[in-house]
Design a protein around this nucleic acid. Structure first.
Lengths: 224, 224
DNA sequence: CCAAAAGTGTTTCGATTACACCCATGC
DNA sequence: GCATGGGTGTAATCGAAACACTTTTGG
């Protein structure tokens, strides 16, 4: 049994900021698809775990270190890579774009956030991977609390609300949403206010980590 | 970039019959773990897709051809296989145990259905894979219609009900369950009855394939 | 006629939805 | 004082849950 299959990992990284969902892409420095945009990723080394591989590649290619990464799906069609048989394990991650400075390095000629509705043409079968990731992300918010990974440590309630309405692609009722979230008991209200220039200043909240991760594990069903 | 990682696929196959959930295991013919039980699976060939690989291995090792297979998760810890670095893509499948005759062949010394509560010790990290599969199966029935793959073509309503109560591990209200399922419009009622020896004979139903797969794709939320 | 499983409706309860006005601040 | 975003409660509606008796057959 001698195989010549190579193994890679790829990461779809979602960022959220001020009502915009974006995705982190790199411009490829080498063939194949030189000069084209792609999801960050690369080959797995013999002695590292898959998670270590994604984290390393992300760091190398884009400069970010991500806190939330989840395995998405494994793509393995025989001809998905022109270099030969490459099977790729795709991950998806969430991050606050402003939490890290992105910079191109090995393998990447350039790194850039793209708005989810303005994506360039992608290399390999990365469009397919990305579509799967978007689908998963949208499904996730209906059965898990989400936000900790995407919002600042302290945030006004309206940020969370806008995050959800953006991800859901529709308006949410402000009062009902607040009731629901407060009822989940994942937020701690702080004795701090913030003003956005005009209007009444908002109370700041932060996620109660313990309760948050507990709920994630339980897989709370949670309709907005 | 020269890797020496090998790629395999494994399949957790669930069977259901008369109120019992069982899992298909093989007894390994060769080292490592010779003589121990394991999930069927094996190495991916260079020119076949991952799905083709699982189907082939299942056929070779157990004799079954499965209609419903879904990718579960990819396991890739560096030391999960004593032979070296092997990354395995796990699938899970559903089947009616009586639909196929199982028989051992290549790589397998024996093939057997095990009741889900009476599993033997397993090789490699297969216990972990199995646990993930069980978790997924139990989650699935709450957001997808399920049953087509596990029940006979024609079945009395009580079979579906028993399937659900078994998978959920609790009683379901007969009237409410029936209302719910009928409301989904996935069943066609036949003009045929079947008697189970005693009691009133039951009407037979069958799944309306078109509607069933439509609902699956939509990902209906469906609380029992 | 008795045992055994199938079939069937209504009421109760809780959760989701819809909806509008006052509050605190900056300019 | 006015423009801007923040904060709050109640009534109506819908879906889920609870619940028990009648029907059909075999023995």
């Amino acid at each position: 049994m001698q195989q010549s299959i190579q193994l890679s990992v790829d990461a779809v990284v979602f960022g959220y900021e001020a009502g915009n969902i974006s995705i982190l892409l790199i411009k490829r420095k080498y063939e194949p698809f030189k000069g084209k945009w792609a999801i960050p990723g690369g080959f797995v080394l013999d002695d590292e775990s898959l998670e270590e591989a994604v984290e390393r590649e992300l760091k190398e290619e884009t400069g970010i270190k991500i806190n939330y990464l989840e395995q998405l799906y494994t793509f393995g069609k025989p001809n998905r890579d022109p270099r030969g048989r490459v099977v790729s394990i795709a991950y998806f991650g969430l991050i606050r774009p402003n939490a890290f400075k992105i910079y191109a390095s090995t393998d990447a000629a350039q790194v850039q956030w793209f708005h989810i509705d303005e994506l360039p043409e992608l290399s390999f079968d990365h469009k397919e991977i990305l579509d799967a990731a978007i689908k998963r992300l949208k499904a996730k918010i209906t059965y898990e609390p989400l936000g900790f990974e995407l919002l600042d440590n302290k945030f006004p309630f309206s940020d969370l609300e806008k995050l959800y309405s953006t991800l859901l692609g529709r308006e949410v009722d402000r009062r009902n949403f607040r009731k629901k979230i407060i009822g989940l008991n994942v937020l701690d209200e702080l004795d701090e206010k913030v003003s956005k220039g005009s209007g009444r200043p908002a109370n700041l909240f932060q996620f109660n980590k313990k309760r948050y991760f507990h709920l994630k594990k339980e897989g709370i069903i949670f309709e907005i």
